[in-house]
Amino acid sequence: MTKYAMVIDMDRCVTCHACEVACRAHYEVPVPYYRNWVHPLPPQGVYPDIKKTSYVGLCNHCDDAPCVKACPTGATYKREDGVVVVDKDLCIGCGLCIDACPYGSRYINPLDDKVDKCDFCIDRVLHNEEPVCVQTCIAGARIFGDMNDPNSEVSKLIESGATSNFSSLVNVGPNIYYKDSRNVFPVVKASFPPREPIRPTPQKLWTNVVRPIMWLTIGATFFGQLAALALQLFKGESDIKE
């Protein structure tokens, strides 16, 4: 089974923002929103031990994606290949997924008032093209592929220690990895730790109370109907037999 992932090579990345603009162009992301981002970080530390890097981020296509759980309509869902996508026809623009995302990778696109986010350029990928950010990256710092394929560059880099942005508090299985032989990623993690998913009370009420009751009711009705049907069939059968 394919599982798409991306590795950002922090040794190569020069914080040039080409990925960000290529994505903006391809998906017409209106300013000031973005589907992927490069947040430059100033040099920090004490001479001579100074680190300078940036947070190169995009949707983590998490294994245990809080956005999928948060979506009340099922518009946000995880494909079998691991890519988290938004079905625009089902999205009602409620924004609950935005609050749920620990990485800030979602926004409401004012062009259609629906949620937009990185989808790993899945339609390009399915047409054998690279994601646009990978295609344009002048530093060769973005590697995309199937992490379940042991021969892919992505899985080799993950195997050899590429890390991802999770914390002891929030770990929902992010799938963007960072190759980091200069050990700069802790600076990124300290500046941009994953945020605990926010679940508003109405939504908690919805998922924890209303939805279970609803399912229970539907289930009870369904099983009741089924039982009734079975009973009727059983009776009917005996009728035929007669």
Binding site: E28, R79, V86, K88, L111, D116
Partner: peptide
Amino acid sequence: AGISAPTLKTKAV
């Protein structure tokens, strides 16, 4: 072949 319909709806455009 093999592209599920929702794939194409994942973009604003």
